[in-house]
């Protein structure tokens, strides 16, 4: 079993990096109630990949089929910018705007990939291809995740304040719009890169479930971050280790383990309360 896992060790490291980065950002996603922004950005990212594959299939940019990340980044960061700046404030409620983005991006992704001769099966968008992560891919993941994590470590206080009480932060001279935008852009960056390998389902899982587990287990911000990171890494490790020898799809295996952690946390909390 260990030998089988070691064959895919770069893929395992990649899954751990994705789990780490998404679980940290996921705490803000869940606490700020912007879970569906995460889902919409993941769909935008998949639409970006599909667009790259479609263009490649049309013969406009053949190199895109092997490196669709550029398109995915542009589309996802544009979405992050849009949502970070308030997302079409006005008559349309914010969550409706998110829903429109989600639906249109998902449909566009499927349509584009259906007509992309260089494309892969569209379920790749849902499940990803974690086992396909190479050493170079992992280095790309690290090159994005490490700076993002450092930004969030150094400016934790700022991100927390503008998330908790933006009006007071503003009166103390904080550039609230800037910090919100930075949060959304780092979120978009991580989602865009993680989507290449993990797929919508696993990225969305890492953004939501570890943070929820953390909220169920502890009652401090530091505790939530710690439990979210630990549960994401453990879920990645256990899910990955089970999927390889038993020939199971890796992404869903990790998600099931994440779900089990959240369920255990919920049961434990309910027992403590009673």
């Amino acid at each position: 079993m260990l030998d089988a896992i070691l064959i895919f060790q770069d893929a395992l490291y990649g899954a751990l990096v994705i789990g780490l980065a998404c679980s940290v950002l996921g705490v803000y996603v869940v606490m700020r109630r912007i879970v569906f922004v995460g889902a919409a950005l993941a769909q935008l990212s998949s639409a970006g990949i599909a667009l790259a594959l479609w263009l490649s299939g049309m013969g406009w940019a053949a190199a895109l089929s092997s490196h669709p990340i550029g398109f995915s980044l542009v589309v996802t960061l544009a979405g992050a910018l849009f949502f970070g700046m308030g997302g079409a404030r006005g008559r349309i409620p914010a969550d409706a705007t998110i829903g429109v983005t989600y639906a249109v991006a998902a449909a566009a992704g499927i349509l584009l990939i259906a007509k992309a001769s260089a494309g892969e099966a569209h379920d790749i968008f849902l499940q990803g291809n974690i086992l396909g992560i190479t050493r170079v891919d992992m280095l790309v993941l690290l090159a994005v995740a490490v700076p993002v994590m450092l930004v969030h470590l150094v400016f934790y206080k700022e991100f927390l304040f503008v998330s908790f009480d933006r009006e007071t932060a503003r009166t103390l001279g904080y550039r609230v719009d800037f910090w919100n935008l930075l949060l959304y852009l780092t979120l978009g960056l991580v989602i865009a890169v993680a989507m290449q390998f993990a797929g919508v389902m696993l990225v969305f899982n890492f953004l939501v479930l570890p943070a929820v587990t953390g909220m169920l287990v502890t009652r401090s911000m530091r505790g939530i971050f710690a439990v979210a990171i630990a549960s994401a890494l453990l879920a990645a490790l256990i899910g990955f280790s089970l999927s390889v020898p038993f020939d199971l799809p890796t992404g869903p295996s990790i998600i099931v383990v994440s779900g089990a952690f959240a369920l255990l946390a919920w049961i434990g909390r309910s027992m403590v309360r009673h």
Binding site: K157, Y174, M221
Partner: peptide, 29 residues
């Protein structure tokens, strides 16, 4: 602020919330 402008779902201790009033004096990062 008005009390409903603050998000009480954040698990923060009273002392940590009060210290936020010094964040601008403490400096970025």
């Amino acid at each position: 602020p008005q009390r409903d402008q603050v998000d009480y779902s954040f698990p923060l201790k009273v002392l940590d919330v009060v210290m936020m009033g010094r964040y601008d004096r403490i400096g970025l990062g």
